[in-house]
Structures are given as C-alpha cells and as structure tokens.
Design a protein around this nucleic acid. Structure first.
Length: 607
DNA sequence: CTAGGGTTAG
C-alpha cells in the first residue's frame, strides 16, 4: 500500500466512523489539501478547492504523513476505528521493518495517551508486524496487554497472531502454551502450531499435532496439508507421506499446484523418484517451483544427471529458471564435475544481471571448487558483496580439497574480522586443511577452539578429521589414544580414518583389528573390505587379500558401484561399473577390452 | 476491517 492508497483507505474508513467530530473531519480534510498526498484522480475525496496539478511528488514517507497529521490536530482524540485503519494500512516493509515497527508503537503510544484502548482489531495487526520483524520483546509487550484486557481469552485472531509471533521467533514452548490456553481453536490455530513445530526442526511433533487436529474433527485444507507434507519430507518417512497422500486424494485437493509441488518434494525426499515423476507429469498446472522441486529433489537424492536432464527439459519448454533452479543445477554440476554446464550457468547469471550473492554466489563458489577450478571459485568469492558462513565454508572446504592449506587458513582467519561465525562444517574444512598440510599442532588448536571459543560441539566427523590428522602424520598411537578418550561413540568416520592411516603407514596388524571395529559399526558397506584388501596387497599378502574378497561375497555386502561421468557438448554421459544401459554399450565394452589389452601388453613389455 | 502456505548450499 503506498501513501496515496493509505490515505484513500483511511479516508474511506472515516465514512463509517461514527465518533469523529465535525471539527476533526474538517482538520483532516484541510490537512489532506495542505500536504496533498492525494493526486487529482481522487476528486471526490478532495472536492474543494480544486488544486492545480503539482509537478513534483511529495517526498514524505507514509508514516510521516500520518504522524504529522496527528501532530497537527488540535484535539487528536481520533476514534478507535480510525486508528485501526491507520495501523492496518501502515506498510510492513521488510527492509525498513524496525523503523515501521517503531512508528507502529509510536501510534500505539498516541492511542493510549488519548485514552483509546487497542481492541481485537488493533492487536492482530500489531502482532502481525511483530511477527514480520521477529520482534519477540514487542510481541511479549502486546501479549501482556492482551492478557490485561482479556483479549487473549476471548479472541481467536489475537491468539493465532500471538502464536505466530512466538513461532517465527522460535519459541515453540510459548506457541504451545498459547495454543493450550486458547478456549477456541480454528484451522489457523492448528496450522500455526504444526508450522511452528516443522519450521523449528520438529517435524515429528508437527505430524503428531496434525493427527491431534484430525482427532479434534478439524478438516485440513491445502495450506495445512502442504506443511504436513513438508514434515514428511524432512522425516523421509515414505509410508507416512503415502498416508497423507491418501488423505489428500480422499479430500480432492490433489489438483492444487501447491499440493502438487509439496507431493513431488515429499516423494523425492522419501526416495521414490519414480512416483514423484508420476505426480509431476499428472499435475494439471505447473509453475517454476514444480520444476525446482524436481531438480533440487533429484539432486538431493544424488541423481545429479537426472536433475540436469529435467533442467534441460525445462529449457526446451522455454521456461525461465529462477535462482532456486540455478542453485539446484549448480549443485548437480558440482557433484558431477561438469565444468562446462556450470560455466554456462555463471554466464546466464551475468547475462541476466542476477546478483551473484547469497545462494547463487555460494553455489558458484562450490561448483568451481568441486570442478577443480579453485582460482575461479576464489574470484567469485572475492567479488561477492556479502559473504555468509556458507560462502566462507564453501571456500575453505574447496581450498582444503585443493591442498591450498595456507589460503584455507587465511580465509578462516578473516571470518572473525568480518564478524561471520563459523559453524560445524567450516571446521571440517579447517581440520581437513591442517590434515592435508600435516599441521598437527594447529589442527589440535583449532579443534580445541571449536568448543572453547565457538561453542560448537564436535561431531564424529570432526573426531574423524582429528584421527586422520594424527594418523597421516604417523602418530598412530596418539590417534588410537584420541579415539579412546572420545566422549561419543566412534563411528565409521573415525574407524575409517584410522584404517586409512594404517594403509599409509603399512600397519597391517593394527588394520586387522580396526577393520573388525569398522565392520561392527558399518557391516553393510564395502569400504572396510576394499581398504583392507588394499592394505594386504601393499604388504604383498595377496592370499589374504583374495580371502577377504571371498569373505565379502558371502556376506551380502552392498558394493558402491564405481561411477564416473563426462560432459560432451553439453550432454552428460554417465558410466557405471557393469552398466549396459547405453545404446552403444557393446561397442564401448569392446573398445574398453582393446584398451585393456594394450595396457597389458605395455605392462608385459615394461617388466 | 483482522490470522496460517511449497522449493534453496557446505
């Protein structure tokens, strides 16, 4: 709502306002004429005297008009309804939210000073603004007022907006408290509660609340179901998702585009890509979010090539990608290592003047780093106007991967200077860099600082990094000791790191016992077997290596298939061990055999 | 006259 619309709104409300005096009406009228916030296209609002068309627009902000109007009134005791109209009409600009919230409270002060009590129309408007600004303290002030005036007990709008304030501020306990104390609850109350749980990372509780809602014989609408589906996505619980899906089809809301998008997302995150595609294909209306859900969801499932295929399908249909699309595409490029396509996205971003900050910038840094172009990753990183913890983390992890140890630590050192707090993943990069550079003492220092300075609790990944750091440097005993003193149970990360160290330093006996421990925590994967058989081979213990491979076959271990991809003229070709799905796979394998025999001949010649 | 929506990186 702009300044003019606001005044039209306020002025229109005056007509139904019974308690305003004639003097006040005249004052308002003259104020409108004097400050001329309204152009001539509203002649019935400013009827006399006819004002000449003015050349330059008024520079006053909306609330300046309102407040200066109130200050100009001789007896500014406006009626409640007019105050409500003003408060309701005040803009809630997210960029200037503090200012507008401040002005809102100024208006409230004005009201109270004139003995007018905010009512059940005023309070929800104010709380809505508090929610948008995440203003917890202000919300609590209004809550206190609402308790005093008994609005909390009597009005469902007041309760719901109050719940919303606490939900966006992350105080789920208070959301629940207001909900429990509400004498009447409608669909919005339930939805706000569910949403609060899901957004705060408690999808299970959100789903429980949904079932509570069903028990209360409240029927969910599209909005509620979208939120519940997103909870299923977060839980990765396919059978639950299917139950909700059934509810949706029973209630005939499956043709809604929001529901469709949420269904596609849910099926993908729960691992049923085929059904997601089916839902997607059957959607009567699709928007860019539908495509994004497919692309990001496939990438989330590690189906990067499929994600890029969907993107190309989208382009063939002439649809414009948005920044979320591009982030999904860049993520897929990064994981496939397809630089060309990543460069294409970068060019697209530049060409369309999309700001390469935030999500896009971070994804570009990550893509270039993972595609082996660390210098370009660094250039994008440097050119970003705004860098957050994700930008720094992507950069540090990338530098560490490339063995740029000093650079990685320099970038990390910059973080406190610019006031960006590192998180757990940042430290993975830092510790990996130290490990790479053999910087044992520094690594230990950063590991200690993680909890002492940054109050981050090290996870098994961090312990794994430390074991790797010590083990690589040949400090195997220290690594073992470190594991013994871990406050949490060591898992595959940790044992894997120690086994890796055994391989580097040829510690076959220790490796055997470590492998047993690794198999205990991760019996279903082939990593331990592969690593151990390599250790045997390096020690020339071929018979043990063969024995191990046989033991593996008998134990139903899932083998991670070797996989690589190559990009040719913008098309990604993927190769999997034993894969015969390619049209020309016969020719490919024949060529491979030829190449192999060439190699063998060379080996024979060399010996 | 008022309140609640989906997708996003390491």
């Amino acid at each position: 709502m702009n300044s003019q619309e606001l005044w039209v709104h306020v002025y229109g409300r005056l007509k139904s306002c019974k308690s305003i005096s004639t003097t006040q009406l005249k004052q308002l009228h003259s104020f409108l004429i004097k400050t001329r916030p309204l152009p001539l296209k509203y002649p019935n609002l400013i009827s006399s005297p006819p004002s000449p068309p003015h050349k330059h627009k008024h520079k006053y902000s909306r609330s300046t008009h309102i407040l200066s109007f109130l200050n100009h009134l001789e007896k500014p005791d406006l009626c409640l309804s007019l105050y409500n109209a003003i408060i309701q009409g005040l803009p809630s600009n997210p960029t200037t939210k503090t200012a507008s919230l401040f002005q809102l409270f100024e208006l409230l002060g004005h009201m109270l000073a004139n003995g007018i009590l905010p009512d059940h129309y005023t309070v929800p408007s104010v709380l809505k603004a508090c929610a948008q600004s995440r203003a917890l303290r202000e919300g609590q002030q209004i809550h206190a007022y609402a308790i005093k005036t008994r609005l909390v007990l009597s009005n469902v709008y007041v309760n719901n907006t109050l719940m919303r304030v606490y939900a966006v501020c992350g105080v789920i306990k208070w959301v629940r408290m207001v909900f429990d104390e509400s004498p009447q609850r409608d669909l919005v109350s339930w939805t706000t509660l569910i949403q609060g749980y899901v957004k705060m990372g408690f999808p299970r509780e959100g789903v429980e609340a949904f079932f509570g809602m069903c028990d209360a014989e409240m029927r969910a609408d599209e909005m509620t179901l979208v939120i519940v589906l997103s909870a299923c996505s977060k839980l990765g619980d396919l059978s639950l998702g299917k139950k909700i899906s059934g509810y949706i089809y029973d209630n005939g809301v499956c043709r809604d585009v929001f529901i469709g998008n949420a269904l596609v997302d849910m099926y993908l995150k729960c691992g049923d890509a085929d059904f997601a595609r089916k839902v997607f294909n059957e959607m009567p209306v699709r928007n860019v979010v539908s495509w994004n859900s497919m692309i990001s969801g496939l990438a989330h499932q590690g189906k990067f090539k499929e994600a890029l295929d969907v993107f190309q399908e989208m382009q063939r249909m002439g649809l414009e990608p948005d920044d979320v699309t591009l982030v999904g595409v860049l993520n897929s490029c990064a994981n496939l290592g397809v630089l060309e396509m990543g460069e294409w996205v970068h060019a697209y971003v530049d060409r369309n003047q999309i700001e390469a900050d935030g999500f896009i910038g971070n994804a570009l840094v990550d893509m270039y780093a993972k595609c082996g172009s660390i210098d370009r990753a660094f250039r994008v990183f440097q050119r970003m106007n705004r860098r957050d913890v994700y930008s720094y983390t992507a950069m540090i992890v990338g530098l560490a991967m490339h063995g740029e140890v000093e650079m990685a630590l320099d970038v990390f050192a910059e973080m406190p200077r610019v006031g960006v707090e590192p998180d757990e993943v940042t430290f993975i990069g830092v510790l990996a860099a130290c490990s790479h550079g053999g910087l044992v003492a520094e690594g230990q220092k950063y590991f200690r600082e993680m909890s002492s300075v940054y109050k981050l609790r090290p996870q098994t990944e961090h312990y794994g990094c430390m074991v790797d750091l010590l083990g690589r440097a040949g400090l195997i005993n220290e690594a073992e000791e470190f594991i013994e003193n871990m406050p949490i149970e060591p898992d595959a990360f940790v044992w894997g790191a120690l086994l890796g160290a055994c391989r580097i330093h040829g510690k076959v006996e220790l490796a055997e016992s470590v492998m047993k421990k690794l198999l205990k925590v991760e019996p279903e994967r082939d990593g331990a077997y592969v690593l151990m058989s390599n250790i045997y081979s390096s020690a020339n213990r071929w018979r043990d290596a063969v024995k191990l491979r046989r033991a593996m076959k008998g134990k139903n271990v899932k083998k991670t298939p070797g996989c690589s991809s190559i990009e040719l003229d913008g098309i990604v070709h993927e190769f999997r061990k034993g894969d015969k799905s390619h049209k020309r796979s016969k020719e490919i394998y024949k060529l491979l055999e030829e190449i192999m025999s060439h190699i063998k001949n060379h080996e024979l010649l060399a010996h």
